[in-house]
Simulated scan of single mutants.
Amino acid sequence: MDKDVQQGFETLAIHAGQEPDPTTGAVVPPIYQVSTYKQDGIGGLRGGYEYSRSANPTRTALETCLAEIEGGTRGLAFASGLAAEDALLRTLCKPGDHVVIPNDAYGGTYRLFAKVAEPWGVAFDPVPLGDVAAVRAAVRPETRLIWVETPTNPLLGIADIATLAAIAHDAGALLVVDNTFASPYLQQPLALGADIVVHSTTKYIGGHSDVVGGALVVKDAELGERLTFHQNAMGAVAGPFDAWLTLRGIKTLAVRMDRHCTNAEAVVEMLTRHPAVRQILYPGLPDHPGHEVAAKQMKAFGGMVSFRMASEEEAVRVCERTELFTLGESLGGVESLIEHPGRMTHASAAGSPLEVPADLVRLSVGIEDVDDLLRDLTRALG
């Protein structure tokens, strides 16, 4: 295969880091379920492997693929998305530093900042990242990171990655983009100026609700080396079977995302006509405040849809009445999920500036037959 030719996303997802096994010719990388490796003399490592916390061939295949599909120089796979976030914060921040985060960030990210990073001495400010003036005003001399989710979880807010990258770099800070909702197929933050991409690979990248994982992908090679040191030193790495499952999921990411997006658009169209729905939050709608930015920086608008009912009681009732949409946390799997963020994924933000509306329902629209999904939601809405 000509390495000088720029390959398409679908090709990279299937082949990057995944050459046939040199011993057997197996076309899928093996699961190297091993903790240690024979050395050819002291310090004589075969392929650089000595202990699987430091490196494992299955994890290397995944990390190589992640870097390629995000357009980065180094990918790192972790045991969870929050493990990846924690390693990033402890590598790049120290007591006295400051971070700007979205004012509607994922509840687990908010908990990490409020309950772990802040007691350690890292200050943070939640800011509406769609308001460029507010972001500029929040940046301090000690700001080290501007932390972006776009789209956000669960309010589907949109941030202009290129603009925020310029603000961060002017301040001597780095731009971190949580690309979990969009996936690398729909959005390429590094190409837009971001320095680091974060993923919960549990979600769209894994895609089958059978593995928990996280990832970082970086543009700068030296930063990649620093993060790799901390990945090894802190130890929350992806195990070989988890890495193998995640790599398997990546192979179908493009075709799955196409279907997620098509189904979500049909669901949104139905919700716009339903009298019980008070508001729909979806960046594909022309009246969404971030629609133009999303159209510019995303290939399509994703498979996540949130909407508001007339009351908390009605929102809970809808969540409890669906049958095909499974009531459950997480997102990005082939099956459709429904949840009440205020009582479920974002309960940790209750009482904080990031508390989500009590009447909010969040959908992760799967890849089932769209007519079946529409019937299920219509019946649940009454």
Rank of each mutant, 00 (worst) to 15 (best):
L66K: 03
R90E: 09
A67V: 05
A166T: 11
Y106E: 05
V99S: 00
A138N: 10
P57A: 07
A87L: 07
R46Q: 15
P141C: 05
V100I: 04
T152H: 01
H169T: 08
S52P: 11
R136P: 00
D104Q: 12
E63L: 06
A87R: 04
T152A: 03
A137T: 08
G41W: 14
G121E: 13
D170Q: 06
L145R: 03
L82W: 06
A168Q: 11
A55S: 14
A105M: 03
A168G: 12
K115H: 13
A79R: 15
S54I: 15
L62Y: 11
T163L: 08
W120G: 09
L164F: 12
N103T: 00
A133I: 13
L66F: 07
I167R: 07
A114S: 15
V135R: 02
A134K: 05
L145T: 06
A123M: 08
I69N: 08
A77F: 02
A166L: 12
D170S: 07
R140P: 06
H98L: 01
I167M: 10
D97W: 00
S52I: 11
C93G: 04
I146M: 06
G130T: 09
R74N: 09
N153S: 05
I146G: 05
A137H: 10
F113A: 02
A55W: 12
P128F: 01
G121R: 13
T91C: 10
C65L: 05
C65E: 03
D97I: 00
I161P: 02
